[in-house]
Design a protein around this nucleic acid. Structure first.
Lengths: 205, 205
DNA sequence: ACGGTAGTAGACCGACCTGTTTACTTTTGG
DNA sequence: CCAAAAGTAAACAGGTCGGTCTACTACCGT
């Protein structure tokens, strides 16, 4: 269920705690799940939790970080399996389909965490920003390596090309995030497929 | 700050409670704000809150419903001011810019509420679904009235045209929701503008 | 002028929250 | 083999939560 090499050393009990907490935090909400319940469902005493993680906040961060790592691995796997950069962009949306089937039917854990955590200084906010900027950066790399936009004269300023790439990458990110959130709110079960289709159209104007 | 004709009768104290709760719920999160704090900041006793709203849950729903109504009014105003259906679709994104400037720098209140409320039977979930389906429906109406897609032979089945309209409407919704959420998470301050641009491109393929 | 409605003030309740502590047992690595 | 690390068990602390209740007062329409 979880990758076993994501963090060097975690006691078996700590592993159970993290797995249980991940399940509960994601599906019930962070604030709705107390450490007592985590301890009970993980078959562990509270002391163990506090010995290993120090605080609930740390446990929350461990949950978010581990999930982020797991997700990026899935995305990269799909990108690597794609035949060409354009296909790789579309493959990101396929990775979302897979991800949702296995680990996500309640939207993005980062966005949800943001909603529950008031303080903007909380590290969860930075982590969320990191994740989204990473995906947009990945999109931008793929677009660039596709050699998209060999437009105009050769004297065309490179800065403009770069800007165009960034814009398109952001468009793809918006479609992706829109699909993540909308797959669960209405009856938009086809959101990911539609997002993929739109992405394809935006790539070849 | 708030529309005054949205609900027939609300005592002045109840009005203050709702306004204060809306501010706090949206910016701090629903679970992070207790009724004691709402009472204190609204200059009201807890008894008044419970006399008027019955429970915190009811107050939360009143907050979400009022905000939803307020938002739809803004969207409709922008749609009405647009010269043509195509412009109206783009105007929805302009309405988002205005909305964000006045009432929203922490994402979508519905989505955030969903993240905080575990039970899928909670009426907030239905309300969120309603809001999103409404916007998609609005998009679909605009696309249809634009006479988009007078493609192919006149014997083309109408069902297919309808399906295409629904797909495009969903694409626009995804861009919209993506822009709402991403405007606040990274440094994607241009998310709405980019979404608008992409929407325009998706409308004229 | 009066009666109902809306409001204040503030104590109170039980449940639940994160986090700590003490005392004892199990596991594990050099 | 044995000491350190990891874990169990369970009580405890201090706070906050949503929600109730009593007693008294201000307002407002008829």
């Amino acid at each position: 269920m979880t990758t076993d090499t994501e963090q060097p050393r975690l006691t078996r009990a700590a592993r159970r705690v993290l797995d249980t907490a991940s399940e509960l935090f994601y599906h019930q909400g962070i604030n709705s799940v107390g450490v007592d319940r985590i301890a009970a469902e993980a078959g562990v005493t509270k002391k163990t939790i506090y010995d290993r993680f120090g605080s609930k906040d740390n446990l929350v961060m461990a949950y978010l970080r581990a999930r982020d790592v797991r997700w990026r691995v899935v995305v990269e796997r799909h990108i690597d399996a794609a035949p060409d950069p354009r296909g790789a962009v579309l493959a990101v949306f396929d990775s979302l389909t897979e991800w949702r089937a296995t680990e996500g039917d309640r939207g993005c854990a980062m966005i949800n965490a943001r909603a529950e955590i008031s303080g903007p200084d909380h590290p969860a906010h930075a982590l969320a920003a990191d994740q989204k900027r990473w995906l947009m950066g990945r999109f931008a790399e793929l677009i660039e390596s596709a050699g998209l936009l060999e437009v105009g004269s050769e004297t065309e300023v490179k800065a403009e090309v770069k800007a165009e790439i960034q814009d398109t990458a952001l468009e793809l990110l918006l479609l992706h995030e829109g699909a993540v959130v909308m797959s669960d709110v209405g009856q938009f079960g086809n959101a990911v497929a539609i997002a993929r289709k739109a992405a394809g159209r935006l790539l070849s104007p």
